[in-house]
């Protein structure tokens, strides 16, 4: 409900059904600000014009607050609070840029960058720089695992490290179908794909988090290939993936051959022609070819979700052109 309320409020696309909410006053970096009751600190910070980095936060999902990059300091609290999920309270004193908050954010970025490939994560390079993160200081990255090796790791046991190399999640991408690729070397384990696939949107439950600790990974049951899983190829996991670990095969191939170039792409939002629902699709076009399809998150009906046809059923457009 909250998500829908928020969407409605932000976009004004329909008449809000809920009664107006009471305003709560809090202080953010010394500035007093009033936001509706039940909002998160993150929303309040946005209202106050603060730029808080986020990774696992998704505008269409319930916050998982797993990545901890959005932590802020609350006066009187023993530990830092995740801005993305903590609700505002009257009289709260929030410090978004304190030494402690900056330190934890920097460390989170360093820990991630030293273990995960963040090369396709939007804004990662910018944040690493602005927080002065030096992921190299944990040592050279360990050699990537062979495909499937990380999927066999047993909870509660690991090979003892020598300390000479920094453990990573690097591994070859999983390419087991024609539509999309899972490159788990880029996975920060934000749980968003699992939530989108499961109870929050698609109700397909093709993937889950398996394993534990640093060896936790996103997986189908028994690491079966996607075509043997419950996956329906709606691509709603790709829509919410914050790092590019999940990507269209068309994007993955172009990146591999070096021809992916977002500056040459245009985005056109139109209506899917397959059925009568009328979902919005945003076609990303490069060199007059559709290279991927997204959907506007603020659409009050679909919230960025599509089905296999809207998401991947664009080949006929290009095929016809070639004929």
């Amino acid at each position: 409900m909250t998500i829908q309320d928020d969407t409605v409020r932000r976009t004004g696309m329909s008449v809000p059904l809920a009664p107006p909410r009471r305003l709560v006053e809090l202080s953010i970096d010394g500035e007093t600000i009033a936001v509706p009751e039940g909002e998160t600190i993150l929303t309040a910070c946005e209202t106050a014009g603060k730029d808080i980095p986020t990774l696992c936060y998704g505008d269409t999902l319930t916050p998982k607050n797993a990545c901890r990059v959005c932590v802020v300091e609350l006066e009187g609290a023993r530990v830092l609070a995740p801005a993305c999920s903590r609700k505002v309270e009257a009289g709260m004193v929030v410090k978004t840029d304190s030494e402690r908050a900056r330190h934890s954010r920097k460390l989170v970025l360093e820990l991630l960058a030293s273990s995960v490939d963040l090369s396709t994560t939007p804004r990662a390079a910018e944040w690493l720089e602005s927080y002065g993160a030096e992921p190299e200081r944990f040592g050279p990255a360990a050699a990537p695992a062979a495909i499937g090796e990380r999927d066999k790791l047993h909870a509660g046991a690991h090979e003892l490290p020598s300390g000479e190399a920094a453990a990573t999640v690097h591994q070859p991408p999983k390419v087991d179908n024609e539509l999309y690729v899972r490159d788990y070397a880029k996975c920060i384990l934000c749980y968003k794909c699992v939530d989108a696939c499961g109870e929050q949107w698609q109700n397909t439950f093709a993937i889950g988090v398996a394993g534990r600790g640093f060896d936790a990974r996103i997986s189908t049951e028994h690491n079966n290939p996607l075509p043997d899983s419950a996956c329906v190829y709606c691509g709603n996991c790709i829509e919410v993936c914050p790092t590019g670990a999940l990507s269209f095969k068309s994007e993955f191939d172009r990146r591999a051959e070096g021809s992916w170039d977002e500056s040459r792409q245009t985005q056109t939002t139109t209506i899917c022609t397959y059925c009568g629902v009328g979902c919005n699709v945003t076609l990303h076009v490069q060199d007059n070819e559709i290279v991927k399809v997204t959907s506007p998150h603020e659409n009050p009906v679909t919230h960025g979700n599509l089905c296999i046809k809207g998401r991947f059923g664009f080949q006929h457009v290009q095929n016809r052109r070639r004929d």
Binding site: A66, C67, A155, L189, V209, R212, G213, A216
Partner: peptide
């Protein structure tokens, strides 16, 4: 070994 793996 015992970290659940949820937070970074």
């Amino acid at each position: 070994d015992e970290s659940c793996g949820q937070c970074v």
